[in-house]
């Protein structure tokens, strides 16, 4: 679960950057169509924060 949480964090951070900067043209449904999508970026950033919190809970529970 720790690994999954870490992977999700990285994925959502990349998604947030991609949506905010519009550097990717793939998968328009996810907000990646070359345009700046602030709402998508905010959503992915929130999901990244939740994922890192999940990772922290998992790490502390295992310790």
């Amino acid at each position: 679960m720790k690994i999954l949480a870490l992977v999700l964090t990285v994925v959502f951070v990349l998604f947030a950057i991609t949506a905010a900067t519009g550097i990717c043209n793939a998968v328009p449904a996810l907000g990646f169509d070359g345009a700046h999508h602030l709402k998508h970026a905010i959503l992915y950033a929130v999901l990244a924060v939740l994922s890192i919190l999940w990772y922290r809970f998992q790490a502390n529970a295992a310790a």
């Binding site: 959503l43 929130v46 999901l47």
Partner: peptide
Amino acid sequence: LVVGTVPVGILGLLF
């Protein structure tokens, strides 16, 4: 509540 909000947040924004 946080966990329950995630699905509607994702689906809402995308669709």
